[in-house]
């Protein structure tokens, strides 16, 4: 049963990752790409947390948790940088 939960969420994570990645490639609008990359990142986080899960009785592995925690913050800062680049691009185009 534990393995089932782990397997289920891990596979959903992989599915989200590939869904996000392929639509990041497929869409032309830059904002959509940034959104899609964020979904792909969330899928990878889900995979890592599924690896850490040990069932309801045993404490989960804190190492992937720490990785994902820093990952969320890095993903935000990368998104902010990407959006600032988009804004700059648009300003340059307008001139």
């Amino acid at each position: 049963m534990i393995l089932d939960t782990q397997l289920l969420y891990g596979l959903v994570g992989i599915f989200l990752f590939s869904l996000g990645l392929s639509s990041a490639f497929a869409s032309s609008a830059l904002l959509r790409r940034i959104l899609a990359i964020n979904v792909a990142g969330a899928g990878l986080f889900l995979l890592l947390i599924a690896v850490a899960y040990r069932g309801p009785e045993i404490n989960p592995d804190p190492l992937p948790h720490a990785l994902v925690l820093t990952g969320i913050v890095v993903a935000f800062s990368a998104t902010a940088l990407a959006l600032a680049l988009v804004k700059r691009l648009r300003e340059t185009d307008d001139d």
Partner: peptide, 11 residues
């Protein structure tokens, strides 16, 4: 909510 389900409240 999924993180809570997978016992990762910090995340």
């Amino acid at each position: 909510l999924v993180w809570v389900r997978l016992r990762a409240p910090d995340i």
